[in-house]
Nucleic acid binder design. Structure first.
Lengths: 248, 248
DNA sequence: GAGTGGTCTAGACCACGGT
DNA sequence: CCGTGGTCTAGACCACTCG
């Protein structure tokens, strides 16, 4: 959540009306009462329902839109945001070429397994010791050039049957799967980057000599309630690719 | 230039009132008519001056605050944002330790020179071929551990006398200097990251073996008009440090 | 033409910070 | 106490999309 916190309690922690409306609406989205893609009531209907003015509803809607939980289209209506492969890539994929042009990867998965989380993993995801993780390993390529070797780990309890789904279709974007099959909408990712030397496994998958410097991106992705849902470690060649970040 | 421009906007270039007010105010800040740290007139005074309602002024002020050009303090007033070392570090410095804790570097500069920009540099900064660049090379450390070796390049024409200023005081944050001495406020930085092997120079300054993987951060910093002001290349050890980014 | 979101206005009251 | 920004309301009109 970028702009608005949630939860209103007693007089000790006053929340403006629009923040309370915001919280009520995120709850409906998070609970599935409003499904991704659904059309919301218009501003006046919402205002009547929440017993506030249309301007107050508008302020909550603007915040929801800023946090990408809804999409507003003039003359059309307000919709719950839905992850599509393009949208998720545009929002979360930060690898560009040397000119800064956005790239679109092709993914090839080749391993899935379940295992107990290590201490570091439980800590990163805020899980209980010994929780089960499901992990997917894959290689992402740009025009046949294997560029990224990555492992994606999710708490098994959050996504029962994930392996069955992935055996049927291996998607370009995991976040579409999370949302469509498990009602989990990723809204935030925190990444830390380091430079590492390619080990034997990296070298084999990315076709570089062992010891080649690689960009290691560690991501923790969270849903709209701030719950940590996914741990992902990506190792990326930077011979012709870059990680792009903007600070504003 | 004092008040609102001509009305009668054509359909091709319609701008909402609040956007026009926003533009007028950024212009005053950029031109130095409102200096960093200055107290702005209150909302009603601004509304009267621009001949719009207070609500419209408010919307422009909220946008300016979101873009960090002003700071608003309830019961106090609205001020033009001023860079301080802490503020600039908090906003622009993305290196953290392994726990994700923000770090504060100590800098030691050891070289300054002026030279013609290379083709790649003129292209990155949008300069004419052969433009002069002033460059500063320094090492940044965390608790005596030399961690970052970086080169900062600025168009000499933008900052006449920079070397004299830096010989008198070597600041922790260049952006304070840019603002206080040259009226240039950095509001945006675009960074691209790669993994590289330490060369002999890196190895000597950062006390690592040649070939050690380093994080190379290339930054282009821009002022509030979007003008590219600085090119910076930082090479960072990631033995105990990380680059942190968040995606929302 | 009907319905939607987008902009603009005018006025009210509240919370905060300093006198 | 006063002046500031923060919130909330009510109503008006405009711009866009679609049937």
């Amino acid at each position: 959540m970028a702009t608005l916190p949630a939860k209103a309690e007693q007089s000790t922690s006053f929340q403006p009306l629009y923040a309370q409306v915001y919280a009520l609406m995120t709850e409906r989205i998070g609970s599935g009462q409003w499904q991704p893609g659904a059309l919301l009531p218009n501003e006046f209907q919402l205002a009547a329902e929440f017993k506030v003015s249309q301007g107050t509803v508008r302020k909550a809607l603007m915040a929801l839109e800023a946090n990408k939980l809804i999409v507003r289209r003039q003359g059309h209506g307000t919709y719950v945001a839905r992850h599509t492969a393009q949208q998720a890539l545009f929002q979360f994929f930060r690898i560009v070429d040397l000119d800064g042009t956005r790239l679109t990867p092709a993914s090839r998965a080749f391993a899935q397994k379940s295992a107990k989380a290590t201490r570091a993993q439980t800590q990163a995801l805020g899980l209980k010791p010994g929780a089960a993780l499901h992990s997917i390993t894959r290689v992402r390529s740009f025009e046949e050039d294997a560029a990224i070797f990555e492992t994606i780990m999710v708490p098994a309890a959050l996504m029962p049957g994930l392996s069955v789904i992935l055996n049927q279709e291996m998607p370009e974007e995991m976040y579409v799967i999370y949302q469509q099959h498990f009602g989990i909408t990723i809204t935030r990712a925190d990444e830390t980057l380091a430079a590492v030397a390619a080990d034997a496994q990296d070298a084999a998958h990315l076709q570089v000599p062992e010891g080649t410097p690689l960009l290691e991106i560690t991501r923790i992705a969270s849903d709209l309630n701030g719950k940590k849902v996914e741990l992902r470690v990506s190792r990326c060649k930077t011979s012709a690719y870059r990680y792009a970040a903007e600070i504003t």
